[in-house]
Design a protein around this nucleic acid. Structure first.
Length: 477
RNA sequence: GCCCCGUUCGUCUAGUGGCCUAGGACUCCGGAUUUUCAUUCCGGCAACAGGAGUUCAAUUCUCCUACGGGGUGCCA
């Protein structure tokens, strides 16, 4: 059990589940499932100023909705809890103290103003390597006295002044930094809460995390983390730094350039199957040409070896294509169920399941999302409104002739009988003297509100004879 | 500024020294099927950032430059 693979997704509850986070969670999930390991959810809520009410619930809900179930964490528990960092502060305090005792950390009394001033000076001088370590040399006894006197302070990590630090990242290989470019990171804030750096090291060790899978933005703080592992005498985890997901302009994916929250995509009617499949391909690719995978297939195919190093642009066009693909290939019953809330939101009745199936069965080939599906399906429930150009078309004699004939014939037509419908169409050809577009366009316009769309027979079957009769009669002058 | 990481079609990517006249997918453009639209199928456009090396041979290895991104917070 000691060598079990354990990975964790450790978001901070600042509001919603970012798709970058979703991908990290996905990779965590895939690796854990593939290796029969454990997937842990840990909430990194150490920044009280950024805490957002309901964010944790949101996060869990999104994870559940896309089907990334975790083995340990909030709501499901586990033997390594608590899984909220805000409930583990004593632990961090203890380890911070240990670091201070070992001479690997020290109290710092610099104020925010002091630091601001320092940064300005560094900027002016063109240097700027972060905190300059001015509190390193305060006599421990004096520091103790100032702390006892209640002076606000933080605990900073005392990183080496010189030399090189090397670590191996699973996707990037050897990564090296010079210690003099790494500054003394704050470990415990003046409010007593830890920063990410201390908390993640302590927790990953205590939760026996074997692989730290996270975004590339963490690469440059990894030396600090490694240093702590060494000071504590702990075995560091394997680091797996993922390439960033980017905006179309290649900057880090952000809210300003469109949706970035998983719940936004879900709300717009993207299917979990499509979302997961698409996002899996942002930074990972199977060896062949394959692009379509179910979650289980991803589990089987996934490997760190095939994670790419360069950032990946989030291409909405491709997501749309993939979502449409799943809309039309997944089981119809499933799509109907997924579509229900969207139909309800659009104010459409959902009581006739048979009719819903018929509608969705062909609508789904013409839209990209469940939301579009509901929007597109409105025409089957409410009499279509024609625009100016189409209204003119509908008042012309040729069209009127057809409308009148059908309004008269439909009451005696069996709308579920394709042969009967075809016979009527044939008869219309004779009676009205039209065929091809001249025949079908008016028919479809009356039933569907557009020249282009489904077959007439399908239309009739869905809306039924009463509504069909109403639509033809309604267009009569 | 400094540090780190990266760089194949517009985008996601295959490619680990010869199989590459660089493959697939999305988008776009044609064509076929369909009464129309959509679907489906077929076809087309389109890329190895640049320069030096190493080698009989570089998309693949090395170095430099350029460009992009990330970091440089008592945010994660």
């Amino acid at each position: 059990m000691k060598n079990q693979i354990r990975v964790r997704f450790a978001p901070s509850p600042t509001g919603y589940l970012h798709v970058g986070g979703l991908r990290t969670a996905l990779y965590d999930y895939l690796y854990a499932r593939k290796t029969n390991g454990k997937f842990i959810l840990r909430i990194e809520d150490t920044d009280r100023t950024r805490y957002v009410e309901g964010a944790v619930e949101n996060l869990i809900k999104s994870l559940n909705e896309v089907g990334l179930d975790y083995d340990e964490g909030p709501e499901v528990g586990g033997e390594f809890g608590p899984y909220f960092q805000s409930e583990r502060t004593e632990l961090y305090q203890r380890y911070a103290r240990e670091l201070v005792e070992k001479g690997a950390a020290y109290p710092c009394f610099c104020t925010t103003e002091d630091l601001e001033k320092m940064r300005e000076e560094q900027k002016a001088a063109g240097t700027g390597i972060g905190y300059d370590g001015r509190c390193r040399h305060i006599d421990p006894a004096e520091a103790q006295r100032r702390i006892a006197a209640g002076e606000p302070h933080v605990i900073r990590l005392k990183v080496p002044m010189k030399g090189e630090v090397v670590f191996y990242d699973v996707v990037r290989g050897r990564v090296a930094f010079q210690w003099d470019t790494v500054d003394d990171q704050v470990l415990i804030k003046s409010d007593g809460y830890p920063t990410y750096h201390l908390a993640n090291v302590v927790d990953d060790h205590h939760m026996e995390v074997s692989h730290v899978i996270r975004g590339e933005e963490w690469l440059s703080s990894t030396p600090k983390h490694l240093f702590m592992y060494q000071q504590f005498g702990w075995k560091p985890p394997k680091w797996v730094h993922l390439p960033l997901i980017l905006n179309p302009d290649r900057s880090k994916l952000s809210k300003r350039q469109g949706d970035v929250a998983t719940e936004d995509f879900l709300r717009k009617g993207y299917l979990p199957e499509a979302l997961l499949n698409f996002i899996a391909l942002l930074g990972w690719h199977d060896s062949g040409d394959r692009e379509l995978f179910t979650l289980d297939e991803l589990v089987r195919a996934f490997s760190f070896k095939r994670i790419s190093k360069a950032g990946a642009v989030f291409d909405l066009e491709k997501l749309n294509w993939m979502n449409q693909h799943y809309m039309k290939t997944l089981d119809l019953g499933y799509i109907v169920i997924k579509a229900l809330p969207f139909f309800q939101d659009a104010g459409l009745p959902v009581d006739d399941m048979e009719q819903l199936r018929l509608i969705i069965d062909f609508s789904r080939e013409r839209v990209h999302t469940l939301q579009e599906l509901a929007e597109f399906s409105k025409v089957f429930f409410t009499t279509p409104i024609l625009d100016a150009e189409k209204s003119v078309f509908a008042t012309q004699d040729a069209a009127q002739k057809i409308f009148a004939f059908w309004a008269e014939q439909i009451p005696s037509l069996d709308c579920n009988d394709d042969a009967a419908i075809n016979a009527l169409i044939k008869e219309t050809t004779k009676v009205c003297g039209v065929k091809g577009k001249e025949l079908y366009f008016p028919l479809r316009l009356a039933l569907f509100g557009d020249y282009h769309g489904p077959e007439v027979a399908a239309l009739l079957r869905i809306i039924g004879k009463e509504e069909a009769q109403k639509r033809f009669a309604g267009l009569l002058l």
